[in-house]
Amino acid sequence: MIGSITPYLTLLVAWLLQVFCFQYLVMGNGWLLPTFHLYGLILLPLTLSPLALLLICGLTGALLDLTTMGGGVFTSSALLMGACIPAVNRILIPREGYETMEQGTLQSHGFQWFSSRALLLLLAHNLWMFSLEAGRWGLMVEGWGKALTSAFFTWGLFLMASYISQSKRRKR
């Protein structure tokens, strides 16, 4: 039972951290914008149905929009990411497939798999989010630049979070 609720607890913690901490950590005039709530979304079970994934992503984004005055931008981007997760999972599927309720963690799948998946999903999310936010063609190229740098910044945070959770498990 604990195993089955762990991903949802992770999502809750990641969402809370984004609302209460990471949303204030915007640096470089918006070139480094963390979206840490996505850490909870990419750690949802790999075998979760695509419809459930989509709805959870949409709900997470909508709650974030409501609390941070995002005005729908996080909902829209999280929905797009939710639609991309099954496709990315299929592309990166290991030879032996995924186990039921398995999480796509750094520890279970390794650095290369985790990083490729996280970066692909972060890029999809950020490119859509920054394009929407730019709102006009003149600002689009700068927006894509920000999407790229912010994706790498958030990926760095994901790696840090993964290593911290790994070291805690080892201590136990």
């Binding site: 949409g58 931008v73 929905l79 797009l80």
Partner: peptide, 8 residues
């Protein structure tokens, strides 16, 4: 997505 974009 339609709902989210309308909101946005």
């Amino acid at each position: 997505q339609g709902f989210a974009l309308a909101w946005f």
